[in-house]
């Protein structure tokens, strides 16, 4: 029996991801220190063109404060969930909210300085070899 035949496709540069700046996992990025006064700094990663990167499925969200009385029950539920870091995807799953509704809710909480967002490391034109090696090492332990 011969298998069906596929034909490979060429890269289409217009579909490739825009070049993104490296986003190193800096400790306490978006922490309490003075140069993070602007809450936008916590979730907007400026690209070369100044474009804003939006919340990703694997952006880690961490509560910065206990839920104040002013928040909605929905926001309070989210704040309780992310006492330890949790990805946007996990929050969406636990709160049973669609991804888009989830990002809107998180954006409100970032603006209110109630949560901190830790940006994911994304694929780059030239991937970081030490990152790949760390992932391999972690998988080997599974």
């Amino acid at each position: 029996m011969t298998p069906p035949q596929r034909k490979r496709r060429r890269p289409r540069p217009e579909l490739a991801p825009p070049p993104l700046p490296s986003v190193p996992p800096t400790p306490e990025s978006g922490g309490e220190d003075g140069d993070n006064k602007n809450p936008e700094r916590l979730y907007v990663i400026s690209g070369a063109d100044g474009a804003r990167a939006e919340l990703d499925l694997v952006t880690l969200i961490v509560a910065r404060a206990a839920p104040p009385p002013s928040v909605t029950p929905e926001q309070a539920a989210l704040l309780r969930l992310c006492l330890a870091p949790l990805s946007v995807a996990e929050l969406s799953a636990y709160l049973n909210l669609p991804f888009s509704a989830m990002t809107a809710l998180i954006t409100e909480l970032i603006t209110a300085e109630l949560v901190q967002a830790r940006a994911p490391i994304v694929r780059q034109a030239l991937p970081d070899r030490s990152l790949l090696e760390a992932v391999m090492h972690g998988l080997q332990k599974l």
Partner: peptide, 20 residues
Amino acid sequence: TIPGPRTEDHLPHTAQAAVK
């Protein structure tokens, strides 16, 4: 009562970044 991660599934506070 909202189900969340089990205690043993909590990520450490040191978790800084994720890849997919």
